[in-house]
Design a protein around this nucleic acid. Structure first.
Lengths: 263, 263
DNA sequence: CGCCATTTGTACGTATGTATT
DNA sequence: CAATACATACGTACAAATGGC
């Protein structure tokens, strides 16, 4: 409205060529009703078609690739992407690794959102899950049990598959993808942080069994309670680690800074 | 495990230079404990430091810019980004514009997630909102009322500000940002779709007033009911439009395809 | 198997616009 | 205004990967 630009202004003031090219490619996809996996013109063709240099085309394509709007296969071509939430995962993961003040805050928030989604969808989940789904969930818990302590990575994979299978039957694909994306972010960030106590594998397995049991009985209240019981210890561990870090930060602050110069 | 690669394999088989550069820049930010707004080395410096050409550096920087991990101000320099959810918004918006089968499905899912988040956070919201927040919310509804029908865009902005103000006081910044991001996606996608009936402005205002009233009284149940009442008509309109589209698609399908050839 | 065409990836050089000093 | 530093854009050349011959 006024000529004074408040720092946080839309960058679209002067659309860079790359932006234009990017929009043009998106329009191409939309106008031609392309679907994920469909091939796109090669970079050279885009150059002539859009009248831009290959550098600009490439930068635009790369930005779209980050959003999974296009997918680039080297030596093969460019295709319409799968439109996954990979960008959300990468962005949140970095935020979690960066988070200046409190490393665990983002993890706590992440866990809270996951629980929020699963609890909020509880009734819908119960109504959706088939016997087949429930059997598959039981099988996943069994597999989890077998792997147990001697395969931490496999254990995590089972946990992921469990929560995926729990949400995926829903007709709302967005929530299931979001839920899974948050799981992925957690899995990326958690290992990089120190002071987070080990996962209670036996407890996790018991929690999952309780969740399946409640679901099988169509017990919505029990289902929600089981979910709460499942997430409570995670939140507790995060809170402990957080308190630990804060205490440590205090003592370190008292000792003075010793890493001021890095460059 | 086996040499046979199942199509959906991690692309990380051979990390391209650009990927490495991208990771290197992220590591630089993390190792130096940089915060949003802090300056990054210029492209030339990154070239020498990472031993890559400008092309690779530039492409890497652009991909990070999409994720708002870095922010480039032309003629100025490169800085650590604000880590917003802009990538999520852009990705979901495109998905909404693309969605082949059902244009309104993504909007319905979006609305559902928003309601899910706000309802799931109801108690926390009530516990968090101060009198100041409530006054601000009332003021926003008043402003909404004044603008009314003669300023559709301003009306939408007020709606956005309302829901933002509702969630922002929460200590979980992730949920408030997600909620707002979904609002943004809706605002981007909705105008591009035909057949979605006009918003009931008077009803929206009344809904918002009911929400604030319940919040002021600390009435959790009433708050949740007010939210449900607020989102119900949106979902109904979406369902109507969806049914309309499906009916139209059926008749069109009977008329035959006429856009088979594009290339 | 090698060869070749296509396509993307990387590198370098140069010119231009823009913001700061 | 001039100088400087930076980002933007273009063009070209070659390297590497993929698939078909």
């Amino acid at each position: 409205m006024s000529p004074s630009r408040p720092q946080e202004f839309r960058t679209a003031a002067r659309p860079s060529l790359r932006q234009e090219v990017s929009e043009a490619i998106k329009s191409y996809i939309l106008d031609n009703r392309l679907r994920p996996g469909d091939p796109l013109p090669s970079e050279a063709e885009l150059c002539t078609a859009l009248g831009a240099s290959r550098s600009s085309i490439r930068e635009a394509v790369k930005t779209l690739a980050v959003l999974d709007i296009v997918e680039v296969r080297r030596g093969h071509g460019t295709y319409v992407g799968r439109l996954s939430l990979s960008a959300l995962v990468e962005g949140l993961a970095f935020r979690g690794l960066l988070s200046p003040e409190d490393d665990f805050r983002i993890l706590a928030e992440l866990t809270e959102v996951r629980e929020l989604i699963e609890r909020g969808m509880a009734e819908r989940i119960l109504a959706t899950l088939t016997d087949e789904d429930l059997d598959a969930l039981d099988a996943l818990v069994d597999e989890m049990d077998e792997r147990g302590a001697h395969d931490g990575e496999g254990f995590a994979e089972c946990d992921r598959a469990f929560h995926r299978r729990l949400m995926e039957p829903l007709d709302n694909k967005l929530v299931s993808q979001l839920s899974l994306a948050f799981w992925d972010v957690y899995a990326i960030v958690a290992p990089h942080l120190k002071g987070i106590s080990e996962e209670d594998e036996a407890g996790t397995i018991a929690d999952h069994r309780a969740i399946v049991r409640a679901a099988r009985e169509g017990d919505a209240d029990g289902f929600v309670r089981a979910l709460a019981g499942h997430y409570a210890p995670v939140r507790r561990r995060l809170a402990e680690a957080r308190a630990d870090t804060e205490a440590r930060a205090d003592t370190e602050a008292a000792e003075g800074d010793e890493r001021a110069a890095t460059a």
